[in-house]
Structure formats: C-alpha cells, structure tokens
Design a protein around this nucleic acid. Structure first.
Lengths: 146, 146
DNA sequence: ACTTCAAGTTGTACTATACAACCAGATCGG
DNA sequence: CCGATCTGGTTGTATAGTACAACTTGAAGT
C-alpha cells in the first residue's frame, strides 16, 4: 500500500465509521444519545463544569447545549448548582442516577468494543489506539487549542 | 498500554471521532451532507443501484432513502431510470453534475485528510489504514453479510 | 384470478442542531 | 454611582435527518 492509497483508505474507513456510529449508538442505548453520553462523560471526568464550557469543547451552539442539559436534568441525571460568585453561571454536576447510568452504558459499550476487538493481538490493539489518539489530537494550524 | 487500556482508548477515540465527523463534514461542504456524499459515492462505485439496496447497505429506512434520493434528483445530481424488466424498480445513476460534485468534494476531503496525516511516516499510514479496514469489516456473529 | 410479496412514496412525529432575539447578572469607564 | 457593554443562559423559529406506519403499484405464486 502506498502512502497515497493509505490516506485514501483512512479517509474512506473513517467516513464509513462516522456514518454508522450515530445510528448504532442510538440503537444500542435508546435512553442515552451519543451526545448525552459524551456530555455526561465530560462532567464525570471534570467533576462538573458550565454549559458554556461544554459548548466550546464540543463546538456546539449554546442553545443546543442548553436544551441537552435541560433534558438531562429532567431525566434526573444531572443537577445545576448556581455559582455563588457569579449568579449567571450554573455549574453542572452528575447526580447519583447520572453516574450510575453513565457507568452502565460505558460498560455495555465497552463490552461491544471488546467483542469486536476480541481476536486482535495485543500489540495491534496498542498500535491502533495510539494511531487514533494521534489522529484525534491533531488541530488545524493556527488554532489555539483549549 | 495493556490490552484493556487499548480497548478503552479505541472506544473513546472512535466515539470522539464520530461525534465530530458529521458536524465538521457539514461545515466543510454545506452543499453535500455526509449521507448524500456517501450515497453518491456508492452510486459511483457500483455504477448505479436501487434505492432498496442503498437502504439495506447503510441500514437506513427506505423512506429516508426515498427522500434523500428525491433531494439528490431535485439537485440534478442523480437520475432515475425505470428498470424495463421490473417496473417497480428505479435504477439510480449519477448525472454528469453529480459525478463532478462528488469528485470535487472527494478532492477537498482528501486534501483535508492529507494535511492531517502529512507528518505520519508511510509505515504508520499503512498500518493505520489496515487497522481501520479490519475494524470496519467486522460483523456481529450470526450476521449474514450482504 | 386472488393472494401475497417487493419497491417506493407520503403522512406524521421526533431529535439534534443552528441562528437570532432576548433576559439577567457582572464589569468597566466616566 | 450609572449607563454601556460583556457574558451565561433560555426561548422562538427553522431545518435536516431519521423512523414507523399506511398506502400505491407492479410482480409472482398458488
């Protein structure tokens, strides 16, 4: 495979993957969309953050985040705590139920990935993971990374 | 990196990629969504096929495909030819304009990928491509692949 | 010929998304 | 201190993509 062919294949395969991801994610976990899952994961990882931070991080409009957050709150998965220092900001936190559902969905996603990758040699797994991390870490030139 | 960690990382990175792909595809090419692009690509590759085939291949509802196809036809990118052997069937073909737009978007996507992968050693490109192909080729056990 | 099957279309509904207009709290220059 | 401006967030409106169900039309089997 030449370098040009490889780039071509990477493009094709990443596109194919992206095409399927949302649909299959939706079918796997009707109760938690890919976006919601990602937002909950971010909250867990950071231990709470503002809606504006989520919007910036995922390149979503603040209105979109606002509605997602409202839905997650309605579902009892997150709660808002008004920042005492600045009454405009609401710091978002996972609730117990949110943490639990997140763990559950994460586990089931992990199981699906494990099955899919079951017969890969360890060395290939590590290299593939490394490539993906490297691929995703790339930022367009001139971008100040946040 | 242990195998378990690698699986974890692959899951995380593939999810992150999927999350961004649609949005960025939409921003790059407002005139051709990721789905439309994929459908056009399929037509080009196969040299024409039925709407039902597209639906089956991409796990989309036939109504969804019907509307996508209608939009592509309205845009003058594809045309329908009734199958003389079975008047229910419409074989879809790219038009000249469709072929041209597809080529143009493909080229611009390719340039973006090339830029992103510019400083990867050839060997890594080939291996990454191979992993992606292998990853996407997987089908759930018990599935008769079409 | 009647029934059943297959390809597509259309009606309806829902989700995710963006943009624009807006509200409310914070901050800064006078 | 006060109006101008900035920032975080919500709401109104519009659009795209999707699914499911009902329907239409043509094909095939008994």
């Amino acid at each position: 495979m030449t370098a040009a062919e490889a780039v071509e294949a990477i493009q094709r395969e990443m596109t194919a993957f992206a095409r399927r991801a949302r649909a299959s994610a939706g079918r796997m976990h009707p109760e938690l969309s890919l976006v919601s899952y990602t937002l909950l994961g971010h909250l867990e990882e950071r231990g709470g953050c503002r809606a504006t931070d989520l919007a910036a991080h995922y390149a979503l409009d603040k209105s979109t985040v606002s509605r997602q957050v409202a839905a997650l709150e309605r579902a009892g998965l997150i709660e808002r705590r008004v920042d005492p220092d600045d009454h405009r900001v609401q710091v978002l936190h996972l609730t117990g139920a949110g943490r639990q559902l997140l763990a559950q969905v994460t586990e089931s996603r992990r199981a699906a990935f494990r099955e899919r990758l079951a017969d890969w040699p360890d060395e290939d797994l590590a290299r593939f993971a490394g490539y993906l991390i490297r691929y995703n870490a790339w930022t367009p030139p001139g971008t100040t990374d946040a």
